[in-house]
Amino acid sequence: MIAIKRSNQFYNFVSIAGVLLLWQLVVSAGLFGKLVPSPVAVFKEFIDMLQNPIGGRSLFMHLWFSIKRVLTAFITAVVTGVPLGLFMGWNKKVDAIVKPVFELLKPIPPIAWIPLAILWFGIGETPKVFICFVGSFVPCVVNSYTGMRYVDPLLIDMTKTFGATRRQQFIDVGLPASLTAVFAGLQNALSLGWMCVLAAELVGAREGVGYIITLGMDTANPAMIIVGMLIIGAVGAAIAVIVRRIERIVCPWKRGITS
């Protein structure tokens, strides 16, 4: 078992090292001119950014600002989206009322909301949180909805036979049975919210990881852009791993496909 794990990690390592090496070789060979920085240059830029403030703030402060925005948006989305989705799944009337408007607004990407977000909320934290919220809200609703819709009708019928009230059916059967799907939705919501951070920080932000990328674009500094991208990527990957761990604790009955 341990041997397999080790070999897994070995392959992971080979893959990352291979990409870095290829990247370095391509750049050294001058295939992209001087425009794409080598991994070494990116690493140097990263070290430089760790030591010197960017736009008046340290790298960690930028990261913290972004995380705070995404978490606020995520939690708001969970608090509003999950109950909405569950009720839509539970009650056909709620579904019929909410669905058309929801389906119409769902495909509109968060970035398209930027102009209206500024018009409605100005340029403080609210529009930025709103953009991330738009991204997180959809998976919260969709998964809770699907989870509730796929609750085994047999279970409901059984509790009905035993005289459970509608409320009891919802709380004691519907909710627990859809928890797995809800949790998958939360995972998606957090990832998507995090992906919206760049769009959100296009709204006149002067701090955050997205701002680092925008600044890199404005100053024609590709190394800075790539550092920003890798930070977003790494944090996103870390979020996925952490959420999977939590899921294993909270929903132990769900067997991962990979394991």
């Binding site: 606020t72 708001t76 608090v79 403080g124 609210t126 709380i171 004691d172 909710l175 627990p176």
Partner: peptide
């Protein structure tokens, strides 16, 4: 069942605490 309701309550509690943190920042500003 009780354990699960407790768990849900916990999640909601954490959620509220965190939102409170998030929303308090602009007010200070």
């Amino acid at each position: 069942l009780k354990r699960r309701t407790g768990l849900i309550a916990l999640v909601i509690l954490i959620a509220f605490v965190l939102t409170a943190c998030g929303s308090s920042a602009p007010k200070q500003e």
